[in-house]
Simulated scan of single mutants.
Amino acid sequence: MADKFELLFIARRVRELRVASGKSQDEFARLIGCHRSLVSKVERAARNLSVDTIDRFATTLGVDAISLFYDKAIPRELHNSIPLRERVSLNVLALRTRHGLSQDALSERAKLSRNYVSSLEVHRPNADLGHLEKLAKVLDVPVSELFAPNGVVGTTSDAA
């Protein structure tokens, strides 16, 4: 499971942004296309989050996914945005390359399978926050850096 602090922060941000939009959990769940219990679990940090879940929540809130990691709401730019799964994949690849790590080295240090890292870099698995935190730790960046917009890492410090 993901780091509790990270989940608590995201939970607080989802609730803040949902309340600011004037939506109840029921209304918000209908907009997302899920059951209210999922919204409740996310807002209580009682559930690990996948990239796709983070994307669905951020999209429905009208913000970029990076907004769930910081106290600043960054509007979602649909015309300039690549899918979140692809963005995370590109950022993992860029950081791995920057650190001069092979997929084998990264997967071994993160205690994940090489197949998982390879698949992640070609946008296949719906990665969860727990796995992404393991990769971020090895890559020596906060997990939020893996969600940096436009496939460009090193930009999240501007979002804080």
Rank of each mutant, 00 (worst) to 15 (best):
A58W: 03
R98E: 15
A65D: 06
L90W: 11
T97P: 00
H79M: 10
V51E: 08
L90Q: 14
P75F: 02
V92W: 09
A58V: 04
E86W: 04
D64L: 01
G62D: 10
R98P: 00
R56T: 05
D64T: 06
R47A: 12
L101T: 03
I74Y: 13
R85P: 00
L61E: 08
T97N: 13
S67G: 03
H79N: 14
N80A: 15
D71G: 15
G100N: 13
V51N: 05
S67R: 01
G100A: 10
A73Y: 03
T59F: 06
V88H: 10
T59V: 01
F57H: 00
H79V: 12
P83K: 06
T60Q: 09
R85H: 10
L84M: 11
H79Y: 05
L78G: 07
S67M: 05
R47W: 00
D71N: 15
F57V: 03
V92Y: 04
S81F: 01
N80S: 14
N80C: 05
P75Q: 02
L61R: 06
P75N: 02
N91M: 10
H99G: 04
L95Q: 11
V88K: 09
R85V: 10
L90S: 10
N80H: 13
G62K: 07
G62W: 06
A65L: 05
I82R: 13
N91A: 05
A45V: 06
R87C: 14
S89G: 15
H99Q: 13
P75V: 00
V88C: 07
S67V: 01
S50C: 02
L101M: 13
F57N: 03
D64P: 02
I82L: 15
S81A: 15
E77F: 04
D55W: 08
H79R: 12
E77H: 12
N48D: 15
R44F: 00
P83N: 06
S102R: 09
T59C: 02
I82Y: 03
A46Y: 01
L61N: 07
D55S: 15
S102P: 08
P75T: 04
I66Y: 05
A94N: 14
S67F: 04
D71F: 11
F69H: 08
S50Y: 00
T97I: 12
S67N: 04
T53N: 01
P75G: 03
T53F: 04
T97V: 13
P83T: 02
T59R: 14
L49V: 03
F69G: 06
A73H: 04
N91T: 08
I82F: 05
A94Q: 09
R56A: 15
A73E: 14
G62Q: 12
R76E: 08
V51H: 01
F57K: 03
N48E: 14
L84I: 12
K72H: 12
V63W: 07
R98F: 11
V92S: 08
I66M: 11
L90D: 10
